[in-house]
Design a protein around this nucleic acid. Structure first.
Length: 655
DNA sequence: ATACGATTTTTTTTT
DNA sequence: AAAATCGTAT
């Protein structure tokens, strides 16, 4: 038996021990939210609930992995059938068994955002043949609009009205593209991220026997980061919980930072309206940060109107106040950070206990250069995801063809790699392939070489060669690392070297991919999981963490959620950058930006440095003067009162 | 008509 | 830094 009293405080213990029914837990930053959830899962299992009857929905794969790993250390049970993962992951799991009910094949392919953007662009070209007004939304914006409509279960017109009023005149065409996009996906047997949720909801809503089956199966549902769920996700959870009503949602309204993805603040604010019999708990004891940092954070968030009343209480001993550092320019900002990092390191703070946070990826450029110059090792956790890099997607596309020769998108990507084959030619070749009975077999024949005229034939020959060596390596049933090796050996390596200056590091990536892929049972299994993964599995990260030296972490604030470091540097705390100018134009934009600031601040355990450059040079605007972020200015006491500011200010020396 | 290189523009955040 | 657009050569 676990000695719960020993490891949990009173607030946490109550949540862990509470019987079923709807439960809402408002858990402040650093209040042991993850700990509480893990112990509750362990408690449920200990009191006889079978793991397969529990669903744990988390926001990231990493959160799910780490929670389940911790549960495993607490109870001795096989968690293999516990349904734990992101909403998308869990939806994927259920849809694999039921997709044919909705008119999909069970072997549907999941598109990542890159694939989706590509297909959307094709649809756009179909709908708008003549390019009149050039104000029409482009690929990713168009995708955002359509995606937002799905996630909010709203019409495109509503989304345009609310967020993109300037695109309203194009409503008809946008809707037409959306329809065409939907058709194409269906034809191709593809689902994008939104379809996973959308289709799961349809499945549960329209097929009572399916709903009954799953609602019966999951006697206990636990949802993490509830403040970041969207309407669609909330509806899915409600459907799944409809039978047993043992639903526990955990979240912190002050950390809701995903409204751009349709996250609906109202879900958590109105949970007690949807479930009038729910019991509400608050975790307000913060174990992470010094009282100075907590005071600063509390003070900041009170500027938001819409929130649950709560005040974090710090239990740690006092430390130093957060520090504001105005720097002359970007370069001084980054050299200050590097300098301070070195001092901290010298005084015994390990590098992996130091993080540099920022609002947008491109804010980290100068910092990366500076750290490189100082020889300080760092790791970037923002930017393009591993599996979305061009070279990874190229190789994956070959594998996709082998696994499913009807995969139009994969074919077109692969064909486009060869010289003298562009969009038009690839289209022609695809029509040839699609017309054949056996797509893969046809690609081995002579007709394949000739199907697009003379100019393309050299490229097609080497394509044929690569596909041939893939088949020789076992094809569909082959060992995945060998397949990847076969792609590299039959010409792709040369292609890489010709295309990129850093080809060697890209080859390393592919070697890493091969090592990772070795862990999967089958090619199909590997490929269908791929789109939902952002980084490699935890083992990989573990190995990295121990085998290599300690590293400073550079990350966007969004990705820092849930993590903590001894010292945190927050860059670009200036108007227009931390409340990001673009974000302020969104409805409720300022409050969301302030929550983002709150998340960043509460990542720090002991030391918090808020930096901003006084001047910035940008190509469009020339030299600009920046003022400190409103989130800092609003914390200053009225004029004349000094000494009571929740932060101190440093002046940086000239070099 | 197509492919490809040069030029210009544009960067929020993520499953 | 990457993508979209433009212009030129095939």
């Amino acid at each position: 038996m676990i000695e719960y009293e020993k490891y949990l405080n009173r607030e946490q213990l109550q949540v862990v021990m509470e019987e079923g029914g709807p439960l809402l837990v408002i858990a402040g930053a650093g209040s042991g939210k993850t700990r509480t959830l893990t112990y509750r899962v362990a408690r449920l299992i200990e009191s006889g609930v079978k793991p397969e009857r529990i669903m744990l929905a988390t926001f990231t794969n990493k959160a799910a992995r780490s929670m389940l790993a911790r549960v495993r250390t607490l109870v001795d049970a096989d968690l293999g059938r516990l349904c734990g993962g992101t909403f998308h992951h869990n939806a994927h799991f259920i849809l694999r068994h039921n997709a044919q009910l909705l008119g999909y094949g069970n072997n549907f392919t999941i598109m990542d955002s890159e694939d989706a953007k590509q297909l959307l662009a094709d649809c756009l070209a179909e709908v708008r043949t003549k390019t009149e007004g050039d104000k029409f939304p482009k690929g990713n914006v168009l995708g955002d609009i359509i995606s937002l409509a799905s996630n909010r279960t709203a019409e495109i017109a509503d989304v345009l009205d609310d967020r993109y009023p300037f695109f309203y005149p194009f409503l008809e065409d946008i809707a037409a593209v959306a329809v065409r996009y939907g058709q194409r996906k269906k034809e191709l047997n593809f689902m994008d991220f939104d379809d996973l949720l959308l289709n799961l909801k349809r499945l549960l809503a329209e097929f009572p026997e399916v709903r009954r089956h799953y609602a019966e199966r999951f006697t206990h549902l636990l949802v993490d980061e509830y403040q970041d769920t969207n309407l669609l996700q909330a509806e899915i959870i409600d459907l799944l919980a409809s039978q047993h009503r043992n639903l526990m949602v955990v979240g912190d309204d002050s950390q809701s930072i995903y409204s751009f993805r349709g996250a609906n603040f109202a879900n958590i604010m109105q949970f007690s309206v949807r479930y009038p019999d729910c019991r509400v708990f608050k975790l307000e004891t913060n174990y992470r940060s010094t009282p100075e940092i907590i005071h600063f954070a509390n003070l900041s968030i009170t500027n938001n109107e819409r929130q649950f009343q709560k005040t974090l209480v710090a239990v740690r001993a006092g430390g130093i106040k957060p520090v504001l550092i105005p720097a002359r320019n970007v370069f001084q900002q980054s050299s200050f950070v590097a300098q301070r990092v070195r001092e901290l390191h010298a005084s015994g703070v390990p590098l992996n206990e130091i993080a540099v946070l920022y609002r947008a990826h491109y804010h980290s450029m100068e910092m990366q250069m500076e750290l490189t110059r100082w020889g300080l090792p760092f790791e970037i956790r923002s930017g393009i995801r591993f599996f979305e890099q061009a070279h990874i997607k190229d190789v994956i596309s070959y594998l996709r063809i082998i696994a499913n020769p009807e995969d139009e998108l994969a074919w077109k990507r692969v064909l486009g790699l060869y010289s003298r084959i562009g969009k038009a030619t690839a289209d022609k070749i695809w029509r040839f392939i699609a017309g054949q009975a056996d797509a893969l077999l046809s690609a081995t024949g002579e007709e394949f070489i000739k199907c697009a005229g003379k100019t393309a034939s050299a490229g097609l020959m080497s394509c044929q060669e690569t596909l041939g060596s893939l088949l020789a390596a076992g094809g569909h049933k082959g060992h995945i690392p060998e397949l990847i090796q076969a792609v590299l050996d039959s010409g792709y390596r040369e292609m890489l070297r010709g295309k990129y200056t850093e080809a060697v590091s890209r080859e390393d990536d592919l070697a890493q991919l091969a090592a990772y892929a070795a862990k999967f049972y089958s090619l199909d299994n590997f490929l269908s999981e791929l789109a939902l993964m952002t980084s490699m599995g935890e083992e990989e990260e573990q190995e990295k963490g121990t085998a290599e030296e300690e590293k400073i972490v550079l990350t966007s604030i969004h990705q820092a959620k849930g993590l903590e470091w001894t010292a945190v540097f927050l860059l670009w705390c200036a108007e227009g950058m931390l409340p990001l100018a673009r974000a302020l134009s969104e409805p409720e934009g300022e409050e969301e930006e302030r929550r983002l600031f709150y998340v960043a601040v509460t990542r720090a355990k002991d030391q918090l440095y808020l930096c901003y450059p006084l001047t910035d040079y940008s190509r469009g605007m020339g030299n600009m003067t920046l003022s400190p972020s409103r989130f800092i200015r609003e914390l200053s006491p009225p004029a004349g009162l000094h000494g009571d500011r929740p932060y101190e200010q440093w002046v940086v020396d000239e070099e």
